[in-house]
Amino acid sequence: MDRRNFLKVTAATGALVAISPSTITGRLYADTNILYQTYEKVQLVDASGVAIKASTLKKETNYVFNYPYVSTPSILLDLDTPTVQDVTLKSEDGQEYIWKSGVGAKRTIVAYSAICSHQLAHPTPDDSFLQYCTKDKKTMAYEHGGVMVCSSHLSAFDAKEGCKRLAGPAAQPLASIIIEVAADDTLWAVAVLGPDKFHEYFQAFKPEFKKYYGGKREAKNLVNTSAKMVTLNEYTKEIIQY
């Protein structure tokens, strides 16, 4: 490689990293197997593209947005009580990590990857077996409501404690989506904390990706700039909760 080409490659790489730092930081975190990965910072917007404000969220309502990939559903909640702080969680392979707390004025806003850590049940446009069960409802998965429930094999997770496992066959928490509330009250997704199941998910649901996204390659596109967030009722035709 001559000097001119070397300078071109160096300048192009520098420009790429400057435009999108997560292209390099994300890879580095993944390679070191740390349970935290930054992705493109995206703004949560409603179906018509208007930024959603934290103060407009309805309490204990399942909001769905796809992040960090266009096909990986996440659930955002504004709980009715403040979340617990600095929760130590453990992945299936024994790695510990700290879930700091919910965000927002009262630390009530949380978001989790809506792919079950047991057998990857997740909301689709046709149905949803995994969602938050409000406090006033009963679930077969746990002794009371107010928890995230996967109704496929009846696993329950504590939404106010980083979705640590409470009951059922799941062996680890749901991964958390790191949310930031900006000074103007808008919501941003920035990273994933904890043992995500994205790799297994992309392996397992190839026919489903064809149906909903046109194929696996399309399903693996990263979300950028903004992510549409709607209520679970709007996202899916049928909510199944036992």
Partner: peptide, 20 residues
């Protein structure tokens, strides 16, 4: 009996995988 929709989903997924 409450697992009816779960069973139905498994049937649909088997069909999807078999077609693929």
């Amino acid at each position: 009996a409450d697992a009816g929709k779960f069973a139905k989903k498994r049937e649909q997924m088997i069909k999807l995988y078999a077609e693929d």
